[in-house]
Design a protein around this nucleic acid. Structure first.
Lengths: 103, 103
DNA sequence: TATTCATATGAGATACTTTTCATATGAGAA
DNA sequence: TTCTCATATGAAAAGTATCTCATATGAATA
C-alpha cells in the first residue's frame, strides 16, 4: 500500500486481509492475544515481517495493541473479524466443495 | 493469482475483493444484474478488464452469470456479499473517523 | 547511562496482480 | 455459412505489495 488511497473504498479493507501472513496472524490471535515474539514462534515467521503486517492491520483497526513492559501485546478486533470469517465459512460450505485448488 | 493455492485459506477470498475494479463491479451489481457491456458503460471500464475481473469473482462464486442471447448477465451473490459489506460499514463508522487517507 | 531485550522502520530486491492490446470464441441474425 | 455483436483469453508490460536485511527506536534493568 504505497499510494495514497481513500480509506472509504471497500477494497482497502480487503487488501489488508488478502495475504497469508495477515490471515495467519488473525487465526493465531483468535485463540489469544500475543506479543510479536510469541506470534513469531507460533507461526514461524520472521519478526520484521510480522511487524510490517501488524502495522497494516493496526492502521485499519483490525488489531489493537497495548504495551506491557518491553512487550507489545496484539489483540484481534473480534467484533469485526469473527462475523466476517463466519460468513466466509458458510459461503465456502455452500460454494467451494468442488474448488479445492485455484490456478 | 498465478500460483496454485488452496481455496480453504481466507486470504484467497479476500484477494478476490482487494481491488477497486472488483469492488466497483460489486457496487454496481448491488443495484441490478448487468451484462459486461452495461457494466462497461456504467463504470467506464474497458471490456476485457471487466471480463478478467468477473472471471475471478465468478471462480469464487461471488458473482453468478446466465447467458441471454448474445449477452451474459452477471449477478451478485448477495447472500455472501451484503452482510460482509454491512460489517465493514459498521467497522468504519466506529474506527475510521480519523483515518481519511492511507499512505 | 550502558546494556539488553523487544519491536519498528526504510529501502532495495523480489514476487505477484492488474492492465493492456491483440486475438479468439460464441451466439444469433442475415 | 458468413457477418456482427458480445464476451473471453493469453501474454507482455506496467503497477503494486511483500520480503529481507540492516539498522533504529523504545522500554526496562543493572
Amino acid at each position: 500500500m504505497r499510494t495514497r488511497l481513500r480509506c472509504e473504498a471497500y477494497h482497502i479493507f480487503f487488501k489488508n486481509l488478502a495475504n497469508g501472513v495477515k490471515t495467519d496472524i488473525i487465526s493465531a490471535l483468535k485463540k489469544k492475544s500475543m506479543s510479536v515474539n510469541e506470534l513469531s514462534k507460533e507461526l514461524d515467521i520472521e519478526q520484521s515481517k510480522l511487524s510490517h503486517s501488524l502495522a497494516n492491520l493496526k492502521f485499519c483497526n483490525l488489531v489493537g495493541s497495548k504495551q506491557i513492559g518491553k512487550k507489545r501485546i496484539y489483540s484481534l478486533n473480534k467484533k469485526t473479524i469473527l462475523p466476517i470469517l463466519k460468513i466466509i465459512d458458510q459461503h465456502r460450505e455452500k460454494n467451494c466443495e468442488g474448488c479445492k485448488l485455484k490456478k
